[in-house]
Amino acid sequence: MNAKEYRMAKTGKLMIEILPDKCDFCGCCVGVCPEDAIELKEAEIFIIDENCTNCSKCIWACPIEVIRFNKEGVLKTR
């Protein structure tokens, strides 16, 4: 079972969300994402669901706390 399957089995869903209206589009999250799961344009950003494994590295790297686990998720950081 890979990381993604493990998370999916445990939680049943992908849970990372980025709040695009609060984002500075700096790219820290993209740089640390091991799965190429974040798409960043000039002023647009979104998670590529099929790649995301919920590993949360993007949450830790975000300088301004605009990435988080969404409401359905049970995990919480900070």
Binding site: C26, G27, G31, V32, C33, D36, L40, W60, A61, P63
Partner: peptide, 25 residues
């Protein structure tokens, strides 16, 4: 840049360990 993905598409592993990423403001 830091958000590089082009290299990944060519099969080069470019992502950085989050401990080595200096998140700045």
């Amino acid at each position: 840049g830091v958000e590089s993905r082009v290299g990944r598409w060519a099969g080069i592993k470019t992502h950085i360990d989050f401990r080595e990423m200096e998140s700045c403001f």
